[in-house]
Structures are given as C-alpha cells and as structure tokens.
Design a protein around this nucleic acid. Structure first.
Lengths: 254, 254
DNA sequence: CAAAAACAAGAGCAGTGCTCACATTTGGCA
DNA sequence: TGCCAAATGTGAGCACTGCTCTTGTTTTTG
C-alpha cells in the first residue's frame, strides 16, 4: 500500500494535500497502535509522537480520542466488508451454501488477521465511547447485508427448507416485518430470525477463536473446528445440509 | 448483602479479620467501578479513594491492577456459574431441552444484569492483561461443563438425533478425543463439535445483545428474538423438542 | 501586500499505575 | 510483660494519559 495518495485530488492547495495526507497517517498509525496495544490503550499522544508532532497538534486534525476511534471503526468495517465482497466475487449467485461459507471464512480470516480491529468492532464496547450511528451503521451492516442477500436468494430459489409452524410471537413478528421492509426481503419470519441467529452464531464462533476462549493449544488447527461450525450453521439456517456439502458445491477442503 | 463477613473464620486475629474484610471491600468496590466505568477504566486509585485509603495503601492488598482484574474475573465466573446452577437446580435430569434452555436463559439474564463483568469475561481481552490460567480455567469452564453434562445425558438417553456421516477430519478428531477424555464424555465427535458450536453460538447471541450489535430500538423486546435463537440452538445440536423428532437423519421438522 | 486562516509548539491541569522512604500500629515470642 | 519484627498506612515522586489554552509561525486568500 503506497501511502502517497492514489485518490488524492491533485487540484488542491499544498496545505490541503498535506492535510489529507496527515489524516491518512493518523489513521494508519492509529491502526498500528490498535494492533499492538489494543483499543483501550490507544493513545493520541503516542500517535502524535510517531507522527513527529507534539501532542496538542494532532487535535487540529482529530477532535478527540473518541473521534479517532470512530475513524478506526469505519476503517475496520470497510476493510471487513471489502474482504467479504472479495471472497464473494467469484461465486455464482445460486451457490447459496458456497456464499455463506465464503462469508464465514472471510470473516474469520479477517478477524484473525486484525484481531484488535475486530475486537473494536465486535468485542466489548470501549467504556465511555459510543460509535456515532450516522457514520458507522452504513459500513457496519455490510456483512449482515450480504448474508441477507443469500437468505433472500435461497428463499426465492426454493433452496431453503423451513417448517411452517408460525410460532413467532406477534410482537417479534412486527419487529421482523419492519426489518424485512427496511432491507427489502420477502422471506418469512422464521427465516429472518434464523438468519439473525446464524449471524450471531457466526460471530460467536469467530469471537471465541479470536478472543481465545477455547484456550491455547486446545486445537491443533482451529480451522477444522470452524469448518464444522460453519456446516452446523448452514444446516441451522435450513440451507442444504452440511453433509451434502461434499457432493454439492464441492466442499473446498481448505 | 451484609458486608460483615458470614464465612469469616472467627478464630483469627483482629488484624487478619480486617484484612479479609478489606480484600472483600476491594473486590466489591472494584465490581462497582467495573459496572459503571468498564474494565479498561478500572482504576486502583479510584478504588482506594472509595475505600478511604491513599492510593499506595491498596498495593498492600493487591499487587497490581492486573491482579485486581483477575480477582474480578474469578468473581464473575463464580457468579455466572452460580446463576446457571441455580437455574438448573429445579429441573429433572432427563429434561435435556429444558436444561439447555435454562442454561441459555440464565446466561443471558446474568449477562444483561452484569454487562461489564460479562464483557470482562467474554468480550475483547483487555490489552496487556492475560488471565492466569491456573486461577481462571476452573471457574471459567463451569457453564460449558454444564452444557457438556446435558449433551452426555441426552446422548446416553438416546435423545439426540445425529447423522452418521463421519466427516470430521482426523486431526480434529484427535483433539476432540482428548477433550472427551478430559471431561469424561462418551458422545461421538459430531456431537462434541456440535456442542462446541452451540456454546459459541449461545455466547454470540448473548454478546450481540449485551454489546448492542443489534442496534438500539431494533426490537421491542429482545427476549422474543433470544427465545427463537435458543430454539434454533436446541435444534442445531440435534436435541429433540418433546417426543416428536425420532426420525434419524430426516430433516428435523422442529 | 496585508489580513485571515491554518498550523505547530509548549505550558499546564487533572488524572492514571506504581515505587519508595518513612511513620504508626499490631502481634507473637522470650 | 516488654520488645522487636511484621503488617499497615502516608505522602512524595516518576512517567504516562487526554485535553485546553496561549503564543508564535506559516500559508492561503482577498
């Protein structure tokens, strides 16, 4: 990644160019510190030092430590979203299982590569900081948005088995109807609820691994276990059973 | 809660009695601060202030901030374990689904009641702090231990439907065999893997709710959604809800 | 070219974890 | 019972943090 500005408009005053460059450097150095020290230990002063500035100067660019966190949050969401999109790109639209698996693997891979940023996005909220919804909800919903697309496609294609029992409480049904309207999905309540479950379960599995809940040295290669989990997840949402993954989409064994 | 020591041995010198009392106060105040400020903002100085001591005096009792965190971690694990045990207590041993549901509900309820402690246990690791395994693994495995008990009981009772496909990689199978040996379980690989999935999925659901990933005001009563998730979880692990699902390998209709 | 805006520097405030020298209180033992 | 040592509390101090404010410099702009 070259840091001198592909994408920097050339018709800017030198000062303005320097400003966007400094902003980029701040985010870059912030990400480095995030990766090495963690979110709670992220220090504006240290970023300023690495930038060759005095601590107060960095406040010309970033209003507060929380604002820097917000920058890093949207940066992280974007990167995760890009990773998932890239993994989805070569897949056929009707390969529903393959798409779910790809989303899961890409999410896990990115989380393991950027554990600190993952923790910032999906871990404990950092105390005293609340991500401003207007900036973070957009990029923050890209992954679940992709999942929803798969559910919808699979539902339209009749590739989801679902029991007919209408045992969703009316109260929840109303909420789900609102969601359905917002994201434009036609699948029924049960499927939306299952999709949300799959979403939460996926991040539970990834979090356990990233946050070390399984304990160190418990599994020789945690990927094996994750693949089992993904199979269970695919099955749980009503897509073609994990066992048939082998014959169907050609389960890429690695 | 009376803070004068039920359980404090009476045959102690006044000084020793005062010491255990001070230790208790430190943990209590630490938990309060944890709840209000969060783990990363937990300050030994503030604890000392609330205790009426000068900051350095508290180091006579707790070697460092990390050690206080460890105290709070085992305290939290113990409380969660007690909550789960209490929820399990009135249930019949052969009510497998009921026990799983009880574990899930108790976990969620405790997490929502003590979000900061939950975050300390299951959220992002706090930077620079590593929980010492010798003190935390014991109480930290109580909940999953209860889940394992249910799987095992259900398996012994033939109440778990499982497809026979032996598609667990050998490498993973070795790891699972070791776990099986450690915790004394006879259920096959697939079930152990599914159990781990259910564990991770449960904490994914709880984390999403506690950490606010669903967004505010998305659901009128998140409990409804959680119940759906628990149902999906029970189904995912192959447990039978009631007497219905006796058909092996058949798509579980419920 | 001068006014205005942007930028950088440095001092300062209140807070943090933690250490150390010092004073006081307490407990076990001769 | 007296005494010495251990346990406990104090306050100063170091290096760090986020953040504000004043001062001086540089660049853009009217």
């Amino acid at each position: 990644m070259v840091d001198t500005s592909p994408g920097t408009p050339a018709n800017l005053s030198p000062r303005a160019r320097a400003r966007v460059q400094t902003m980029r450097d701040i985010v870059r150095i912030g990400r480095e510190h995030l990766a090495t020290e963690g979110a709670a230990a992220l220090s504006l002063r240290a970023v300023a030092r690495d930038l060759g500035l005095v601590s107060s100067a960095v406040y010309r660019y970033v209003a507060s430590r929380d604002e820097l966190l917000t920058l890093l949050v949207v940066d992280g969401y974007d990167e995760l979203g890009d990773a998932v999109d890239a993994a989805l790109e070569p897949l056929d639209r009707d390969d529903h299982v393959g798409r779910v698996v790809a989303i899961a693997r890409a999410t896990r891979a990115w989380a393991l590569a950027e554990p600190a940023t993952y923790a910032l996005l999906f871990g404990s909220p950092v105390p005293g900081y609340e991500a401003p919804a207007e900036q973070t909800t957009g990029p923050g919903t890209r992954v679940v948005g992709r999942l929803v697309e798969v559910w919808e496609d699979a539902w339209q294609a009749g590739a989801i088995s679902l029991d007919e029992a209408p045992l969703v409480p009316r109260r929840l049904s109303r909420d789900l109807a609102r969601i359905r309207k917002q994201v434009g999905i036609t699948a029924p309540d049960r499927l939306v609820a299952r999709g949300l479950f799959a979403w939460a379960a996926l991040f539970g599995c990834v979090s356990f691994e990233v946050f070390g809940q399984y304990g160190a040295n418990t599994f020789g290669d945690p990927r094996d276990l994750f693949e089992q989990h993904v199979a269970a997840l695919v099955e749980a949402v009503g897509l073609e059973a994990g066992a048939r993954l082998v014959t169907r989409g050609g389960r890429p064994s690695r």
